[in-house]
């Protein structure tokens, strides 16, 4: 799946939760939303993108980047 589309989707999710006053909770909600609605392959593609791209090229909003990294375990596809 095209990573550009996944990045856009993740950033859109981030834009909604970013407005919440509790940043920690917002990051949890971002990760939870992705985990609960994205197919594991989509999540894996996003995580692989994070692993392989230089920071400047990742393209995620900071809050999304941080949410994905800090909740990585929950987002990983089941083995």
């Amino acid at each position: 799946m095209h990573i550009e589309k996944l990045i856009k989707m993740a950033n859109q999710i981030g834009a909604f939760f970013e407005a919440m006053p509790d940043r920690t909770q917002a990051m949890k909600d971002i990760a939870s939303h992705i985990q609960r609605t994205w197919d594991p392959a989509m999540r894996a593609t996003l995580l692989a993108h994070l692993d392989t791209q230089a920071e400047a090229d990742i393209g995620l909003k900071p809050i999304v980047d941080e949410a994905v990294r800090s909740h990585r375990k929950a987002l990983e596809a089941p083995t």
Binding site: M1, H2, R36, T37, D39, M42
Partner: peptide
């Protein structure tokens, strides 16, 4: 399966 599947637009992309 305990994980969500693909939505329609995700199916198209996939």
């Amino acid at each position: 399966q305990r994980e969500p599947g693909l939505r329609i637009p995700n199916m198209f992309d996939a």
